[in-house]
Design a protein around this nucleic acid. Structure first.
Lengths: 178, 178
DNA sequence: GCGAGGTAGTAAATGCGTGAACTATATGGG
DNA sequence: CCCATATAGTTCACGCATTTACTACCTCGC
């Protein structure tokens, strides 16, 4: 028995076992593997993200979301706020808010779009680029530490499976952000 | 060329390609696979979580975090708030806040711990249990739809790789929540 | 027994992201 | 040409999670 009655040594892994058992035997649910998959996915993402944010970005006064916006703007060049929202997976409102503070910090520039009077083009300032290079250097080292637990082949398989998991999401109507 | 100059058709996948290329050739960074892995992990988790929250929990007046707390309390029986925080990956303060509203809603019960005067035991009320069964039935169906894009073997591999990714995190000092 | 140090839980302050409502601009059919 | 409709972006109110600080309680060693 992995999980004892008083839960003294109950960790995430043994909790999943316990959940599987009870869901199947006491309640007759049938899709335990799906539950386990999404539980594990969520947990892994949270752990890694929290660590990167806490060890790399917070100490330098940046948030995880701020970094993500800077990252796509850095690499995908000047782009519309809408596009930045799609690439980062944030809402347009979030991009608007983040941009406001990043512009105030002198890292981001906001210029009106040429072809569309409604749109706004985001791009990095010179200082923004410099800071991104520095920031990403740190993050990349940390990312490498995390990923190195897996072999390169495992990493490629993991990327492939994760991508497959979300790639066919048009098959049923998935809720996305505004 | 997958990503054109004006970004008209730039999606997440081609952005990753573009990022890999620029990080390697223009900046000389070496750990692109690690970046790609964590980018993909983060994205997959966000997409799936957001969908479950929006399609299952919000319509019934529950938040994703509220559901997670109810879920572990449901299956791991009466447990200390501290334990619930560990299992859900939230801070103790978050559990305290969520518990407050869930108790007010009549789903959760809070009883003082027997052996430790400081601790609080969380358990589901009768109504809480009923609602959880119903709520989880819905969620489990949806989870199954998501997972079914992968074969069962692929799902098992994915779980294994995700678990391996976070299991060895004691090797370097990882930042965790309070 | 008592005091130092540690732990469980809560409260207050802060920051951030979302959805909804709104403004401004674009587009397309009559 | 004009109005209906759709879209880009911003603002606002709200909910939620975090950190920090605090209270209450436990525990170990002197």
């Amino acid at each position: 028995m992995t999980a004892d009655g008083e839960h003294g040594g109950l960790d995430f892994w043994s909790f999943v076992e316990l959940a599987n058992r009870r869901l199947a035997t006491e309640y007759g649910f049938r899709h335990q593997l799906a539950t386990e998959l999404l539980l594990t996915l969520n947990r892994a993402s949270n752990i890694v993200t929290y660590d990167l944010e806490a060890s790399v970005h917070r100490p330098r006064g940046r948030s995880w979301s701020g970094f993500r916006l800077l990252f796509v703007t850095w690499l995908a060049g000047p782009l519309e706020a809408k596009k930045a929202a799609e690439l980062t997976g944030m809402s347009r409102a979030a991009v608007s808010n983040l941009a406001k503070t990043l512009v105030a910090d002198g890292l981001l520039a906001r210029t009106p779009g040429e072809h569309d009077g409604r749109s706004v083009l985001l791009s990095l300032t010179e200082r923004g680029t410099e800071e991104m290079v520095e920031l990403f250097r740190e993050q990349n080292e940390r990312e490498y530490e995390w990923a190195s637990v897996l072999t390169e082949a495992e990493q490629r398989i993991l990327v492939m499976l994760l991508d497959k998991l979300v790639s066919n999401r048009d098959q049923f109507d998935v809720r996305g952000r505004n």
